[in-house]
Design a protein around this nucleic acid. Structure first.
Lengths: 345, 345
DNA sequence: GTGAAAGCGCTAACAA
DNA sequence: TTGTTAGCGCTTTCAC
């Protein structure tokens, strides 16, 4: 609401300090090659005037922005309802901050926003982008590649053509799912069901794959497709109980669905884990620790994933050393998962 | 990872279309006052070259950025764990998007980040800031005012000197709390307790004030200070039950704490609402609807708050019409709350 | 080590 | 209506 007071420029500082703009610029950018007394004088002038460099002017010549965009493409309402993004953001934010980069968050609610985002990325605001594109048919990744800026994806993109060389960070969803199912089998359970996430997301598809790896064809009739939400978990669990009342174990593709499943099981009078053992995925603490009973689940270090994404992006430009040594550039980083045992299985 | 291909400039487009840079600029910015055939030719050239305006260059001359910073000052871990910010962000994001503004999210993890944020805001990246500063003693607001850009606060700032004229958006926490407590009293409850949030936040302090408005001094012994987290709610509830086993109603200052309290009550064998009625605050759906029993709570329209904050900020500059008519500028917008009845009270 | 001068890509008077 | 021109505030050769 304050009317923008005109900020002092390099020129003003130079005048006050009695030096040239070039010298002030040098001091402001680290002061290399400027003699101590001058540095001191310039510093004082900067202080006195409250000078802050104008980034637009700086970027115009340096072509650097020290800012990174985080693009979250999620048309659905659950963008943040799910603590998943929140945790990744924390990791990303920490890493970027440590390297003096700013985080610019771009939320896209629908297709209309896509061109806006593409324009922004191509418009020279940021040095790179971290992209969360969850669905197979999302046009956004293509647009972003068109913008021609370095990009790292969160989660393995699911394009059918495996030709594009993308950099991404993901959890080992398939292996994590295997562990979960093996754990249930190790408990002596034989009728193990799986509540899937939306299968147009690679994370959900990979977890289903892991389930199948262990169960083989025997598992197929016990698979119920769902959507990663608590409500979806409830619906899927009801359907499952109706279809297969003899089920004795459930592997839900995430904790939110598991919590919904637990509610339905309680409502139907099944004891957990005595009658039905339940395992989730994510180890989302606010959910997993506070269900009744607390949830056994597959933990992925979400915050760390975010941190690694940022690191990969910031490192990117360094690697232009040898073009033939290009294959050492990791195109996908897959982090391990661990099973966390609590009371539900 | 792609090496940045040099983007085409206005100059290039002008050359290809056979016109001057000025004409291209006009077309790109809406095409007013340019004859149709030329517009067409320029459009084609833009298309062909994949031209996207360089924002740094543009801002340098226009001094506008079409971007707004959202500053979330939250040293604690719960930044996002709480869906509260997520919802506000959604509202903000929608409103900004509708006005073709970008959202730049600045997370500050600790005091070290403060100067970085101040520098960013003063550095001419954004046209204004939306600030969530929750704690009384936070130095950030001061720094931001120093940056001299329009600012709107989320939640009433709690500075002791009431002299600064700040613009903020808040819920009517006090009135909401009164409603909650009156509802419990209306149920015939007489030993009504209150689990507070951290009292250095105005929202928590205001809710306590509302509780006191209704209960008077009689309520004081039944107030337990806590921290807005589920764990804090559990601890506070335990302490309360130990101290006052005869308590028959609890007003928790937010839903998260209420959920913790419910767990403790169940664990101690108290029936809700028969033995102890419970009311929360926020109506955070993923929490309130899925507790057992579902939570009666005070709803605030968090997303709407975000939307209004953004609207206020974007409108700001318009209002410079008359300086004497300044008092019509709302310095605080306080939104009403409503009680949502579910099963817990 | 320091300053002078050019120019990053764009918009906005001003002329034509 | 269109083009010409002068900067916006900064970094960066290049002389000195």
């Amino acid at each position: 609401m304050t009317e923008a007071a005109p900020r002092p420029t390099l020129e003003a500082v130079a005048a006050l300090a009695g030096v040239s703009r070039a010298t002030v610029s040098r001091v402001v950018n680290g002061g290399n090659g400027v003699r101590e007394p001058l540095v001191e004088r310039v510093r004082r002038a900067v202080e006195e005037l409250g000078y802050v460099p104008n980034q637009a002017a700086r970027s115009l010549v340096t072509k650097r922005h020290d800012a990174v965009a985080v693009v979250i493409a999620e048309p659905e309402t659950r963008v943040f309802a799910d603590p998943f993004f929140a945790l990744q953001l924390r990791g990303i934010s920490k890493e970027l901050t440590a390297h003096d980069n700013q985080l610019v968050l771009l939320l896209t609610e629908g297709r209309d926003d896509h061109t806006r985002v593409a324009r922004y990325l191509a418009g020279g605001h940021v040095d790179g982008a971290l992209v969360f594109s969850l669905h197979l048919d999302d046009p956004l990744p293509g647009l972003i590649q068109g913008a021609g800026i370095p990009t790292v994806f969160g989660g393995r993109p699911g394009w059918s053509d495996g030709t594009r060389d993308v950099v991404y960070v993901d959890s080992d969803n398939r292996q994590g799912a295997r562990e979960a199912v093996r754990h249930l089998a190790g408990l002596g359970r034989t009728r193990i069901a799986h509540l899937t996430g939306p299968l147009d997301q690679t994370s959900a598809a990979d977890r289903l794959q892991g389930f199948r790896d262990v169960m083989g064809d025997a598992g197929t009739p016990l698979v119920v497709e769902s959507d990663f939400t608590p409500g979806g978990g409830e619906r899927a669990m009801r359907e499952l109980l109706d279809r297969r009342p003899d089920v004795d174990a459930v592997f839900a593709a995430n904790d939110l669905m598991a919590s919904g499943a637990l509610r339905v099981l309680r409502e139907r009078g099944r004891r957990v884990p005595e009658d039905v053992a339940v395992v989730g995925f994510d180890d989302m603490l606010p959910v997993a620790e506070q269900t009744d009973p607390p949830l056994t689940t597959v933990r992925q270090d979400i915050e760390e994933m975010g941190r690694i994404m940022a690191r990969l992006l910031l490192r990117g430009p360094d690697r232009r050393a040898g073009d033939d040594a290009r294959d050492e550039a990791p195109s996908g980083v897959v982090l391990p998962t661990t099973l966390v045992r609590r009371a539900s299985a």
